[in-house]
Simulated scan of single mutants.
Amino acid sequence: MANTEANILLIYTGGTIGMIKDFETGALKSFNFDDLLKHIPELKLLDCTIETTSFEHPIDSSNMNARYWVQLATIIEEKYQDFDGFVVLHGSDTMSYTASALSFMLENLTKPVIFTGSQLPIGDLRTDAKENLITSIQLAALREKGRSKIAEVCLYFEYKLYRANRTTKINAEHFEAFASLNYPPLAESGVHLYINDDALYRPNRRKRFKVHKSMASNIVLLKMFPGIDIETVNHILSYPQIKGLIIETYGSGNATNEAWFIEALERLTKNNIPVINVTQCSGGSVVMGLYETSVPLKKIGVISGKDITTEAALAKLMYLLGQHLSPHSFKTIFETSLRGEMI
């Protein structure tokens, strides 16, 4: 696979990967990303040019929100014509949320935007940061017939490249921190880079690249659990500014079918507030109507999240609410794959 020289922009938002250890004190501290090559001289061996930029005030990913998503999307928008690919360094805790959001915000993307990070900082002796960063840049720089081989928002971690909006963080301690249980890896890194061509997203390259920056807030996530009661549900759903609800249901989309619960959801759907059904299982899909306990949800107009992740469902809900769609169009579009996020 030929790889002509590409220009890659490295964007640092914050996170463990941007830390080095002070060997005198043992404390972790941030380093200047302009000095990246000093810490990872192996980057000089890559057949691409690398430039760096950073949030003015890098953040812990636990503080990530839609305002920072817009900031990140704006950086990519402003630099889009100048670079062949983008690698975003991000804390792992909310990486799947941010990467999923960017997949919706960046419409008609024809270049790679690859998120990566690490469990240990660059300055640690056993760090996973170097491999994750080097391979992410190498993947972002892949060219074929004069254009980017990969043209979607991805997440690279521990030898695997995933479609970003298919990922979820599964482990806080192992280097293999992410999984994509409903969609295969786009690429795997070993002695050679293996690209799964059949799994890659195929953009319509004739359409203009467009960035969406209107992301709604006031979203509620409700996880079903045995013993959930009417007082709890009514208190949560009485939130006056609620614009959308995601319910994490059991198995293939099942929830209690007691009248008080169905009535609480129906009050929302009758007021044109979308209710999305996603499974709390790590893998699998919502199939409303398969079991008796999901039939009432289907009847009152609950939207099927199919095999979407919770992270992608939240991002997609915020994105679509920002588009000010009619209720009928909203349901149709949510249940349609926009960026390869669902079947």
Rank of each mutant, 00 (worst) to 15 (best):
A172C: 05
L139E: 00
C154V: 06
Y159D: 11
D197W: 10
I170R: 11
V191K: 13
P184H: 06
L181D: 08
N196W: 07
H192C: 12
N165G: 00
N165M: 05
E144R: 07
L139M: 08
E173Y: 14
A179I: 05
N182F: 13
N196M: 08
F157L: 10
S136E: 00
V191P: 07
E173W: 15
K160T: 09
I137M: 09
R147K: 13
T167D: 02
E173V: 13
E131Y: 15
L139W: 01
S180K: 09
L161I: 03
R163G: 06
Y156D: 01
F175H: 10
L139S: 00
R143V: 06
N171A: 07
I195G: 03
P184M: 07
Y194G: 04
P184C: 03
K149R: 14
L161F: 12
A179K: 11
I170N: 12
D197T: 15
P184F: 11
L193W: 14
R147C: 04
E188Y: 10
E188T: 15
S136F: 02
A179F: 11
G190M: 07
L161V: 09
R147I: 10
R166G: 01
L155I: 09
T168P: 10
H192P: 02
D128F: 15
F175A: 14
I150Y: 02
N196D: 05
A187T: 00
S136A: 11
I195F: 13
H174C: 13
I134N: 06
E173M: 13
K160M: 10
E173R: 10
N171K: 07
E158Y: 15
I150K: 01
S136G: 05
A151I: 04
I195V: 13
K149V: 04
E173C: 14
A177V: 11
Y194S: 12
L193S: 03
F178H: 02
Y162I: 07
A187P: 00
A179G: 13
R166N: 01
A187H: 00
G190P: 03
L139V: 03
I170S: 14
G146H: 07
I137A: 03
A187S: 05
L161S: 02
F157M: 14
A164H: 12
S148W: 05
I137W: 02
L186M: 11
A141I: 11
A179E: 09
F175G: 09
A140M: 01
A172K: 11
K130I: 09
S148M: 08
Y156E: 01
E131F: 14
S136Q: 01
S148G: 10
Y194H: 14
N196T: 06
D128S: 11
A172T: 13
S189H: 13
Y162L: 08
Y183I: 02
L193H: 04
K130R: 13
V153N: 01
T167A: 02
C154L: 01
I134C: 08
P184Q: 04
H174G: 14
Y156A: 05
S189I: 04
A179Y: 07
T168H: 14
L155C: 09
L142V: 08
A177D: 03
K169H: 09
K149L: 04
N182E: 07
A141M: 04
A151G: 09
I150V: 10
S189P: 00
L161E: 00
T167S: 06
I137E: 02
K149T: 09
K169Y: 05
I170P: 02
